[in-house]
């Protein structure tokens, strides 16, 4: 308990563009219980970062776990992390193990 999943990686996405530029699917009570990246839009901050990939599952955003969050709540947490002016980046803990 409390240990990172073995294949997880911390990715810091600088807010280098006006949009984050990812599409996610999944959330608690769906077939995909944690949000998975399904699209990365060219020219968005995530694309510019170069380290996020389609198929990765997002475990945490700025240290906040997405486990047990329904889709809309997970999306809101990610959107607010990108919108806040407190940081010039968003930290994602991702895994390719689904």
């Amino acid at each position: 308990p409390g240990l990172l999943e073995p294949t997880s990686a911390l990715v810091r996405v600088a807010k280098s563009a006006t949009t984050l530029g990812i599409a996610i699917e999944g959330g608690a009570n769906t077939r995909q219980p944690l949000p998975r990246i399904v699209t990365i839009q060219r020219g968005g901050s995530a694309h510019n970062c170069g380290q996020l990939k389609v198929g990765q599952v997002i475990l945490e955003v700025n240290g906040v776990s997405l486990r047990g969050r329904e889709h809309r709540e997970a999306a809101r947490i990610i959107a607010e992390a990108f919108k806040t002016k407190e940081r010039d980046h968003v930290d994602f803990l991702v895994t390719e193990f689904n």
């Binding site: 984050l20 599409a23 959330g27 009570n29």
Partner: peptide, 15 residues
């Protein structure tokens, strides 16, 4: 397995 099959697909949100 049976439970997984009954779970609905998720919507997709662009962020």
């Amino acid at each position: 397995r049976e439970k997984r099959l009954t779970l609905p697909p998720s919507e997709i949100t662009l962020l």
